[in-house]
């Protein structure tokens, strides 16, 4: 079988109607780094040369939502323009940079750590070690401003969400659910299991862009003790802390 060096959008995805102000470009139905890299690649291509009427796009795990203004363009015309979009060569899905998030695990910072460890049949230290060992991909941001869906979590840590979501999750809570991990950027309701807390700020409406992460970034968690956590929290409040970034190592 001949493998094409470049691919047209229409060969890799399908368009799904989302009313008259948006449509989805769906690349698949699963969570997969290469599929997700394709989503972000198409988002970047559209941002570089948006067809008339396109207002913004929202990348998700496996599809791209294209918002448009029906007063300035039609779905049919935009889709026709995008169908022949040349995606170029598929690039490696690995991140260019990796953020390191200092994290205090367990105790009041991670009130679900003990139950989670018990449910997994692992000692809590083992849960922390496995969580901190991973380098995660920013698949997408949403749910809350700056909430990043980070994956994939160690399969040994795969548990469903809490049966009853919390009404209030404190900001900075490091949480896991199924094969994902994430940090709640703001106080909000939430059903993920809270295993730790990071003082890092993920969303600041006064900044442009307002979020810390960009699509395709890598993230890892570095365990810290209560004193270091408190010191970093104070530095963040004083505007004197930027989380360290590492250059990604080749996969």
């Amino acid at each position: 079988m001949e493998v094409p060096l470049t691919a047209r959008l229409a060969d890799l995805a399908r368009f799904l109607p989302v009313g008259d102000t948006a449509f989805a470009i769906e690349f698949g139905a699963r969570i997969d780094p290469e599929l997700n890299a394709r989503v972000h690649r198409v988002a970047a291509l559209i941002a570089a040369a948006p067809p008339a009427g396109v207002t913004e796009t929202v990348p998700t795990f496996r599809s791209l939502l294209v918002h448009y203004d029906p007063r300035r363009g039609s779905a049919a015309a935009i889709q026709q323009a995008l169908a022949t979009l040349d995606l170029g060569e598929e690039t490696a899905a690995g991140p260019a940079r990796v953020w390191v998030l200092p994290t205090l695990y367990g105790g009041s910072a991670g009130p679900d750590l003990a139950d989670t460890a018990a449910a997994l049949g692992l000692p809590p230290e083992e849960v922390v070690a496995r969580h901190a060992a991973g380098t995660y991909r920013v698949y997408m941001q949403g749910f809350l401003p700056g909430f990043a869906y980070l994956g994939d979590l160690d399969p040994r840590l795969d548990l469903p969400r809490l049966a009853t979501p919390r009404v209030r999750v404190p900001p900075g809570s490091v949480a896991i659910a199924q094969r994902m991990t994430g940090v709640y950027p703001l106080e909000s309701p939430g059903g993920w299991r809270l295993i730790g807390n990071t003082p890092v700020r993920f969303f600041d409406a006064a900044r442009t862009p307002p979020t810390l992460f960009s699509p395709g970034d890598g993230v890892r968690f570095a365990p810290v003790g209560p004193e270091e956590h408190a010191a970093i929290r104070a530095a963040v409040a004083a505007g004197a802390f930027e989380p360290p970034r590492e250059k990604a190592t080749a996969p």
């Binding site: 989302v18 948006a22 929202v58 998700t60 795990f61 599809s63 939502l65 949403g142 869906y149």
Partner: peptide
């Protein structure tokens, strides 16, 4: 349940 995707006003 679906694998999460984008929402428009009116969805």
């Amino acid at each position: 349940d679906i694998v999460s995707d984008g929402i428009a006003t009116g969805s």
